[in-house]
Design a protein around this nucleic acid. Structure first.
Length: 291
DNA sequence: GCCCAGGCACTCA
DNA sequence: TGAGTGCCTGGG
């Protein structure tokens, strides 16, 4: 990896396994906008970041070397060697070999746990464009404006304290529907310390999952998403309808129960389960496998 | 107009 | 303990 600053841009070169489209569109985050092919805007870390991917470089702006090192290297998981992860996965079987080859540029982001939690609470029974819209509504209404680009204003995701002030009715007005009380419950339990997002990193995967599931509206799938995408628990294996479909299609040849898939993934993928999940999910959804 | 979507809580056997 | 059902809402 090599990077340099040119004016207000950081230009990243010699980075393997990083495709901005695959990374953002693989369903792990909701606060991004496609501006053009290979050009995205990402809202994270209380900032608006433009990303342009060219043949052999990726340009980030506005930012600086210092900010890039402090925030974005971690956010995009750039220090990790995905070539090794992909090699190990590809050796497991032909399905993973193909899934990895299909989207070799996926990286698992390290997002903010709070925003990630609320976003995935919203995600149940929703399609991605809806989820993005609701998260945007909440940010517009309760977050702070960051900056405006081409007449579009971008907002931070609200803090726990700020969202605490919202009533269930307020949140329903953001189109969250029946999830509104779940969001209120998350605010309360995090604010009063019943659930501590800061500590989750230090807990085992199982304990951290139980901790998250104390919140109403958080079941195994959502807990796994939060653990994988914001707590760094790469052994988490979120099973949503797409993953269920692709796992049944490749490995079971029949309908099976959620817990069968969980047990299988744990044994079969081990500590790489989370990565396997991302490659398989993207592969399945893009090709509509098993549907 | 009906159906369904990246689950979950709730109810009832 | 396990299966069945309802849920806001918007797009196909």
């Amino acid at each position: 990896m090599f990077y340099e600053q040119v004016e207000n841009k950081v230009i990243l070169k010699k980075i393997g396994s990083f495709d901005i489209e695959q990374t953002l569109e693989c369903g792990q985050c909701f606060r991004f906008y496609k501006i053009a092919k290979h050009n995205y805007i990402v809202i994270a870390k209380k900032r608006v970041l433009n990303i342009v991917q060219n043949e052999d470089e990726i340009i980030f702006y506005p930012t600086s070397i210092k900010e890039f090192e402090n925030l974005w290297i971690d956010y995009f998981d750039l220090k990790r060697d995905y070539d090794i992860i992909k090699q190990r996965l590809a050796k497991i079987d032909k399905y993973l070999f193909n899934a990895v080859k299909f989207a070799p540029g996926i990286r698992i982001l390290n997002q903010d746990p709070w925003e990630c939690l609320i976003s995935f609470i919203i995600s149940q029974n929703k399609q991605i464009p809806h989820i993005k819209k609701i998260v945007e509504n909440i940010s517009k209404r309760f977050g702070r404006p960051i900056s405006s680009i081409e007449n579009k204003e971008y907002y931070t995701f609200p803090t726990v304290e700020k969202l605490m002030l919202a009533t269930e009715e307020d949140i329903r007005e953001c189109k969250a529907g029946f999830r509104a009380p779940y969001i209120i419950d998350a605010c309360i339990k995090i604010k009063n310390g019943e659930v501590n997002l800061e500590n989750l990193k230090d807990l085992s995967y199982e304990k951290a999952k139980k901790e998250l599931m104390k919140i109403k509206g958080v079941g195994p799938k959502i807990a796994d998403c939060v653990l994988l995408f914001s707590i760094g628990k790469r052994e988490a294996f979120p099973v949503d309808v797409w993953v269920k479909r692709v796992m049944e299609y490749f490995y079971f040849n029949q309908n099976v129960q959620l817990k069968d898939i969980q047990n299988f993934a744990k044994k079969y993928f081990g500590e790489l389960a989370g990565y396997a999940q991302q490659y398989l999910f993207y592969y399945a959804r893009e090709l509509k496998l098993g549907k």
